[in-house]
Structures are given as C-alpha cells and as structure tokens.
Nucleic acid binder design. Structure first.
Lengths: 263, 263
DNA sequence: GACGGCGTGT
DNA sequence: ACACGCCGTC
C-alpha cells in the first residue's frame, strides 16, 4: 500500500512538464527515503534524476519499496487535470497494475481521482557518484533558459567556459558566431537574481543545445539553476524542487573535434 | 572603424522585424549623417527607406562611409537575442567582411557579442525626391494595420480615397465589398489616437493589400503612421523611429482597370 | 493576469 | 509531427 499526499501539487505538475519531453516512459521508485525517478532520455544520451524526499509530503506511507512504470506523457495529461492549488495524492495497492492520482481542490469542494495503467519497464538504475566539480555556476534559471534558446538560433552546440571573470556561453553556426558572458553578481537583496561562480579550476566544455533546451523546461520549478562542470564528466544541470528535492539532468560533453583527432 | 551605440536597442530589433519580411538582403549605409538603408523588396515592387540619424545614437563613430551588405533574416535572428532593454552596439572594422552586434544588459551583468558575415550586394541607390502630396493622412498605426488586415480577408487591393469627410479604405472580392471610413479626429488629450487629414485635393488610389500588410509590420515602432498620397506617385507609408529617424515604405498605385482600358 | 487557440519554425 | 511563441479571449 502506497499513499503519498503532496500539499503543493503544482510541484508534481511542473516536474512532469519538465521531463515528459525528454523521457517517454520511466519507473517511479518509492521507498522510505522518498519518491524518485532515474531515466535516460529516449536517445540514451541524457539522464534525468528526480528526488522528492518523503519529508516533503504531508503524508507518506510506503509499506514496501515499489517501482511503478509510467508513461510520462499520459501521467502529465492526468496531472494537467489538477488545479495548481490542488492537493495531489498518489495511491497504489501492492501488486496492483494501476496507480491513482487524487486531486483535492483547496476548499475541498472538488475531489477527482484518475487511475492510470502501470507498465513494465526494465530500467538499469545507475549509481551516480557524487563528484567534485571544477566549477559550479549558480544563476537565474530564466537567464540560463534564455541563453540556451538564443544560442540555438545560431548554432547546435554551446561551449560553456568558466573563468574567474565569469561564465561564457558560445556557439557558432552558418550565419555567424555568438558569445554571451555572465559576470558573477551576488546581489544580496535579490538572491534569486544572483549569479554565483565557484571555480576551482577553469573549465570549458561543449554540449548539444538541443538537450540543454530540454533541461530548461524545468525552469518553472526554481528561480535558480546550478550547473556543475568538470572535464571528462557529464555536466549536471540541477533545479531544486521547493524544499523537498531536485531534478538533475546529466549530459556528457561533446568531444571537441581536435581531441577526436588525437584519439 | 565603425562603432554605433544605441541605448534603446529595442528600436533596432523592431526595425528588423519590420523589414525582414519585405527585403531579404540589403546594404546598410553608414555615414556621418546616420545609419541608413534603401532597398527594393524581393519582387521589386515596393521600396523601403530607413534612416537612423547619428544624433540618435549615444555614441556614433564612423571613420569613413561604409556600406555593409547583410542578410536581414540572419541579422534579425541575432537581434532577437538582445533583450528589449539591452544597449546595442554595432561594430565593424574597415575592410572587415564581418559586423559585430554587441548587447549589454541594463545592469551590465551580461555582455553578448554576435558576429555576422557581410555579403556583397549591388544596390541601385535611388534618389527619392521630396514631393508635394495631394493628401497626407496621419492616423494610429494599430488602426491602419487592423484595417489592412480586415480588408485582406475580403479583397486583394485597397482603394484609399481622401475627401474632406475623411479617408476611406475600400475593397471588393468574390464574397462582397467593404468600405471603412475614418473621420478626422483630433483628440488633443490623446494625440497618439488622433486621425489628422491634410488634404490639398481629393485623391483616390489603389494598392495591393499584400504590401500594405507587410508595411504594417512596422507598427510596433510608432503609435502613428503617416500615409502620403498623390496621383501618379507612389504612396509613402511612414513610421517614425523614436526621435531618431523613420522607416518609409513606397508603393506604386495600381492602374485602375478602366484607366488601363483607356491606355 | 491566466488560459486556450492559431500560426510558425524545427 | 511536435513544440514554441504570439494573439485574442475570459
């Protein structure tokens, strides 16, 4: 028996809008720790990791660990039927092949329940080690989103370079080139607009903008995004989910052409 | 060396959105007077003349007259990457085959530079004589835009007739006919909504709506549009650009069928 | 101010 | 065919 009651249901709605484009089907894993998901995107290039800690739920009952395979498009369709102020409860009976989403309007006048078929998905759950990163950039999520979108109109890939001066996003395409530099800016009175760079070592990595633009779909979840970079490691693009967890997107850097030549 | 710094960068963004549909490639001419462009539309029917006077720029350096051929679609793409509050600087080195657009965010936290290849365009620069017009109509640009759009759903051409009573826009098509009359209306307290008609002599001319609708893409530049009409002369549809210049669209009237018959 | 629909671009 | 951005409506 599983019963998870989430007062701020809009968080779950936003989570699904954020990942449904990238991942079509995935297992949600429920344990004492919380409600989580880990999945590769359909082309097996990017990885999404979601965690909603149990403490973030008003009520969290999970009698035994459960892995529920869902089609995220269908799940998103159902969650769109919840109001933004609704309380969402996720229910499943042990051994059942369905999950139920219950939506309660704030004034309790409306109670809806949506039942969805579960699916069998064989997932390879990767252990993701905590790594040290050469540079961690924390910046407004809307700004990062805008930069990725703008650069996409010029090129296909973005080179993210972190130096003491700031973080630079560059691209090149048929019609020209573009460089956008954001300086560190720690405005104390408006923390949500600050850009903070923790750099151990300069780093410069190249990524496919197509995936970055998918990641930025999570911007409604948080005013800030954290981008963790190290050579040889996938970049981590992280959005916090309220106080209760995160979505992290992982994407391997492109090997630069000249490095490819060397290989 | 050329360096033009435009504090209200949104003006340039709007200019490009206004003309990129009509003209694909054009030379921007830079001289001591200002930054200007003159080009025929791709089907060589309409003419666009743009002027941004040097005084309108915060900084205007143009060591020698320069003509820079640009693909307006690509230029528009780059300018779309500028924020509406950004300061835009246009830079080019003498003899260089590229131009650089630099965008500075209002708080200086973000600085972007976009480099674009220039192209060779052979342009016939026409001298456009200042003419006397039989009638000059000044009206809200949104209203003119709406009228042209509405009439396009009925017919292909608009007959613009100016009399003492006002200005009449007429069309006819398979499904019927339409006439829209705007009376002079000089509301002193809301000058941007006024319609003012200066008529020396009644005039009635026919134009292709397709082009008129392209011209109205410039409406975001100005609350008011000026339409100058004379028999035998191209109509001039003019939008002011802040305090610094204008876009003028020229379009030859259609010869009325009965006149054609006479000929 | 927010939501839904329409049109455009990828 | 899908997704995004813009425009019009509630």
């Amino acid at each position: 028996m599983l019963e998870l009651r989430l007062v701020q249901g809009s968080l779950l709605k936003k989570v699904l809008e954020a990942i449904k484009e990238l991942v079509t089907d995935a297992n949600f894993d429920c344990s004492g720790t919380g409600f989580s998901l880990q999945a590769m995107d359909s082309s097996h290039v990017a990885l999404v990791a979601l965690l909603l800690r149990s403490e973030g739920f008003e009520h969290y009952r999970c009698d035994r660990n459960l892995s529920m395979g869902m089609n995220l498009g269908n799940m998103a369709k159902m969650l769109r039927c919840a109001g933004n102020d609704d309380i969402i409860t996720i229910k499943a009976d042990d051994g059942s092949d369905t999950v139920t989403f219950m939506f309660e309007s704030p004034n309790q006048d409306k109670i809806a329940d949506f039942e969805m078929k579960l699916m069998d998905i064989d997932s390879e759950h990767l252990g993701i080690p905590d790594s040290e990163y050469q540079a961690i950039v924390r910046m407004p999520s809307s700004e990062f989103s805008r930069i990725c979108k703008d650069l996409s109109s010029i090129g296909d890939t973005v080179i993210i370079s972190v130096t003491k001066e700031g973080v630079k996003f560059s691209t090149a395409g048929d019609i020209g080139t573009a460089n956008i530099v954001c300086r560190q800016n720690n405005t104390v009175d408006k923390p949500e607009q600050s850009t903070i760079i923790e750099m151990q070592e300069p780093v410069s990595l190249t990524f496919a903008l197509r995936y970055m633009n998918s990641f930025t779909k999570a911007s409604p979840l948080s005013d800030q995004v954290t981008i963790s970079l190290s050579s040889e490691l996938p970049v981590v693009v992280e959005y916090e989910i309220g106080e209760m967890g995160y979505i992290r997107f992982y994407l391997a850097p492109k090997i630069e052409e000249d490095e490819e030549m060397k290989a």
